[in-house]
């Protein structure tokens, strides 16, 4: 039984068709990598899954935990257990990270009919999660992403993910803009969050990230379609040959 099932997905942005019939299934606990050249529709796929406005589904279906995802608003999808680690995390001036995270955590609790978390308990919980990831919770005392370095922003995303415990995590170019040390730290964090109850969809240009986070399946996305699927060895092949094989293909 798949956690996420995407069938013949067509999506448009500003009237232009970007996704042209995607089929993809993610089982519980599986890690799938979606690779592809610039402009292939990778980020569009992540936004469509997260329910961003302006990313319109023209055809096809997305089923998540037996629910029609397309019926749900972005916040409902998040509360159902979909987490998107942003390629460019957004600044929220004046809102302290801890407050932001608590709001998100409580929204999820309320959504599933639970009582909100006690502020002190929550603080302890966040600290323990940060510790598991070898991260400091210092950045949660600052306004969300304001004045953060590229590495801090990505680490913050992973920390949020650790606290919100999603069933499906979509990592959109999490490796972009990271130096090698930051990449290691972030990857280690992601690996610690691997579990049989958590599937991940890792979107990336380069094979580099996949040296640290080993996927179960690799898909090549080009021209709005999955062109090839395979095991982790496919990533190595792409690294050697580039995307040339796919770039000539007509849309």
């Amino acid at each position: 039984m798949a956690l996420l099932s995407i069938k013949n997905l067509h999506a448009t942005v500003g009237g232009k068709e970007i996704l042209k019939g995607i089929n993809l299934e993610l089982g519980p606990g599986e890690i799938h990598a979606v690779m592809g050249p610039n402009g292939s529709g990778k980020s569009t796929l992540s936004y469509v899954l997260a329910g961003r406005e302006g990313y319109d589904v023209a055809k096809g279906e997305i089923v998540f935990k037996d629910k029609n995802l397309l019926d749900l608003e972005a916040d409902e999808r998040a509360n159902e257990g979909i987490f998107l680690a942003f390629q460019y995390p957004v600044e929220v001036p004046g809102v302290v990270g801890m407050t932001f995270l608590r709001e998100a955590y409580n929204a999820k609790l309320r959504y599933s009919g639970h009582k909100e978390a006690d502020a002190m308990e929550f603080l302890k919980f966040v600290r323990s999660r940060a510790k598991t990831l070898n991260m400091s919770d210092e950045m949660l005392k600052r306004a969300v992403n304001v004045g953060f370095s590229g590495g801090e922003k990505k680490r913050n995303e992973i920390l949020q993910m650790a606290v919100l415990e999603p069933e499906l995590a979509i990592l959109d170019e999490t490796d972009s803009g990271l130096d090698i040390d930051a990449l290691k730290l972030v990857s280690e964090g992601v690996n610690k969050l691997r579990s049989e109850n958590r599937s991940m969809l890792i979107i990336t240009h380069y094979q580099r990230l996949l040296n640290y986070i080993q996927p179960d399946h690799v898909h090549v996305l080009a021209h709005g379609k999955i062109q090839r699927s395979g095991g982790k060895e496919l990533a190595l092949e792409l690294e050697a040959n580039g995307y040339a094989e796919f770039s000539g293909e007509a849309a």
Binding site: A50, G51, R52, E53, G54, E73, A74, D75, A78, N79, F83, L84, F86, P89, V90, E91, V92, P93, G94, V95, T99, F100, E103, A104, A107, K108, Y111, A143, Q160, L164
Partner: peptide, 25 residues
């Protein structure tokens, strides 16, 4: 729109997102 989507993606309703962003401001 980026801020709204970011907050909503973390589970906040549009009203809660506006309230949070404005309180921050």
């Amino acid at each position: 729109e980026d801020q709204m989507f970011y907050c909503q993606q973390r589970g906040l309703s549009p009203e809660a997102a506006v309230s949070l962003i404005v309180n921050g401001f």
